[in-house]
C-alpha cells in the first residue's frame, strides 16, 4: 500500500469528478516513496476510477513523475535560454564529470523553471536554487544541503531592496 486510504478518500472528495485526483495522488505517491511504482499506479487508478494503463500513460506524459527511485541528491539544472546564456550547459558538463554522478547524485537538465532572474537556476531535490555556480553546485551534489553559492530561492523579501516593482 503506497497511499493512505483515508487521505486518498479525502483527496478524491475535493474534486467534483473523481478522475481529477490522478495527478494529486501521483504526487502523493512520489512524495511517499520517491517514485511512482506499479503498485502506486494501481492504487491511483482504483481511486480515480480509470484503467491502470491510462494512469501509466499519464505518468509518461509529465516529466516530473519518475518510475524509478532517484539518488538521494538530485540536481536539475535549467537549460533554457537565459540559463543557457549564463553557461548552464558547461555547468552540467562539469558536474557530470564529478565522481559519483549517476549513483550518489544525479545531474539532469530541465526546461525553464521560471527563475530566469537567477540564471543559472536549478531545482535541488524539491527546492528552487540559484544562481548556481560550479563551486556551489559541486558542494551541493557532493555534500547535500543548501550551499553558499547555491542559495535556496525563497521569498524575494530575503533579497536586496526592490529596484523597481519586483525581485532584484
Amino acid at each position: 500500500m503506497v497511499l493512505d486510504p483515508a487521505e486518498t478518500k479525502e483527496m478524491v472528495a475535493r474534486y467534483p469528478e473523481r478522475r481529477s485526483v490522478v495527478l494529486p495522488l501521483l504526487w502523493r505517491a512520489q512524495e511517499r516513496i520517491g517514485y511512482i511504482s506499479d503498485e502506486a499506479i494501481g492504487e491511483v487508478a482504483a481511486a480515480a476510477g480509470v484503467p491502470a494503463s491510462e494512469v501509466s500513460s499519464v505518468v509518461t506524459f509529465y516529466t516530473m513523475f519518475r518510475r524509478e527511485k532517484p539518488p538521494a541528491r538530485r540536481l536539475q539544472v535549467c537549460r533554457s535560454l537565459s540559463c543557457a546564456m549564463a553557461g548552464a550547459d558547461e555547468l552540467v558538463a562539469a558536474l557530470r564529470e564529478m565522481p559519483g554522478c549517476g549513483e550518489k547524485f544525479s545531474v539532469e537538465t530541465v526546461e525553464c523553471l521560471a527563475a530566469c532572474d537567477r540564471a543559472i537556476a536549478g531545482i535541488y531535490n524539491e527546492g528552487l536554487v540559484g544562481p548556481l555556480n560550479l563551486a556551489g553546485s559541486a558542494k551541493l551534489v557532493r555534500d547535500g544541503g543548501a550551499a553558499g553559492a547555491a542559495a535556496p530561492a525563497g521569498s524575494s523579501g530575503a533579497g536586496a531592496p526592490l529596484e523597481g516593482g519586483g525581485r532584484p
Binding site: 480509470v50 484503467p51 494503463s53 491510462e54 501509466s56 500513460s57 509518461t60
Partner: peptide, 10 residues
C-alpha cells in the same frame, strides 16, 4: 472504454 492501447511519452 478500456484503454488497452494508450499513448506513451510525448
Amino acid at each position: 472504454h478500456e484503454r488497452n492501447i494508450v499513448l506513451i511519452e510525448r
